[in-house]
Simulated assay, not measured.
Amino acid sequence: MNDFRIGFGYDVHQLREEVDFWLGGIKIPHHSGAVGHSDADVLIHVMCDALLGAANLRDIGYHFSDQDPQYKGIDSKILLKEVLALVEKSGYALGNLDATICLQRPKINPFIPAMKECLAKVMQVEESQLSIKATTTETLGFVGRQEGVSAYCVALIHRKTPSSP
């Protein structure tokens, strides 16, 4: 049995004007927002996929189908809590997450502390376990043209011991 496991997540959402922009569990003030079946929080979605992958539990779409009406418009923080419960049930706990958001506009760096605070509360972990970074694509591709947002995440989980939280 492995004491440590890593997982990787990648996600993309189209941006559309006059849609709320949820990112990292907080609402970002911007004229465009991400479109999806849920609240389209691309950061939380990659976190979920990285955690599920590390625990060998498939992916977010397997557990929360975009064909299921119960997940229409759902707050992705709820999905993240459920994913963490699945990881914990499989005998693992979070070590740390490292995520990168790719977005041309708006600039995300000013919002990262609020995202970390929100997500740490949802996940019941220390903020130091969550690394969130942001980058642009230097105006290249769909991100550069401000047509979409993408994100990447890696997660490290470890086998829980009787004294692990």
Rank of each mutant, 00 (worst) to 15 (best):
144 G>E: 13
50 A>Q: 11
7 G>A: 09
77 K>I: 06
68 D>A: 15
58 R>F: 05
145 R>W: 09
94 L>M: 05
66 D>T: 10
41 D>M: 04
69 P>H: 08
103 L>C: 11
145 R>C: 14
106 P>E: 09
137 T>S: 15
66 D>G: 13
112 I>Y: 05
162 P>W: 10
26 I>V: 14
148 G>H: 02
17 E>Q: 10
36 G>R: 03
33 G>H: 03
116 K>C: 01
85 A>P: 00
164 S>W: 02
4 F>S: 11
159 R>T: 08
82 E>Y: 00
121 K>C: 09
100 T>V: 14
148 G>V: 11
161 T>L: 15
64 F>V: 08
117 E>G: 02
48 C>H: 05
154 V>W: 06
85 A>D: 01
36 G>K: 06
30 H>W: 14
158 H>I: 04
105 R>A: 15
98 D>K: 03
152 Y>G: 03
5 R>I: 09
23 L>K: 02
45 H>D: 15
151 A>M: 11
86 L>S: 05
28 I>F: 02
86 L>M: 13
93 A>S: 11
82 E>D: 12
8 F>A: 11
22 W>A: 09
115 M>Q: 07
102 C>W: 04
34 A>Y: 04
46 V>A: 01
136 T>V: 05
31 H>R: 13
162 P>S: 10
97 L>W: 07
154 V>H: 05
63 H>Y: 07
119 L>P: 03
52 L>C: 02
24 G>A: 06
110 P>T: 12
121 K>S: 14
24 G>M: 06
68 D>M: 08
41 D>N: 07
44 I>D: 01
155 A>H: 02
142 F>S: 12
65 S>Y: 00
93 A>P: 00
162 P>C: 09
146 Q>D: 15
111 F>V: 08
43 L>R: 02
8 F>V: 14
147 E>Y: 01
